[in-house]
Amino acid sequence: MSEKNVKRRDFLFTATYAVGAVGAAAVVWPMIDQMNPDASVKALASTEVDISSMNPGKTITVLWRGKPVFIRRRTQEEIAEAKAVKLEDLKHPEKDEDRAKNPEWLVMLGVCTHLGCVPLDQKGDYNGWFCPCHGSHYDTSGRIRKGPAPTNMEIPEYKFVNTNTIKIG
């Protein structure tokens, strides 16, 4: 066999492997992607909540995308407590103003950022929330203060449609 032939054959082998790999990936991807959220799950992206009957100091929990969302109408003391915290004392520094644009209303995902349990209201060392699963304490702004959770409870996208209605998502 001449040297020219060998090179030609090498090229054909490499090209065959490359096309084969692309083909295999093209078949494998749909098999993997089918497990991602489907169209019907994505369609349930927003929820409207009536908050007209809520007095200060009351929390309601609503289901959004299968997850609980806490809506709390905070008391003046709680707001003051949240604002008084120094940023350097926080594990995940965030200002209370950035978390609750209307300071009276705190809207956040009721999901502990450690392993996804639902924290309990008005419990723990910081008068906010306490996760019973692995002992994370959150303050009145839902910020992590003590325990294994790495970050503050997440704030979802939401807006006030009017004074009595919040739209989440």
Partner: peptide, 17 residues
């Protein structure tokens, strides 16, 4: 995690798989 769940929380798609 979203891929494992097939949604934004543990739900029906998670159970069937």
């Amino acid at each position: 995690v979203t891929w494992l769940w097939g949604g934004y929380s543990v739900d029906n798609p998670t159970l069937t798989r």
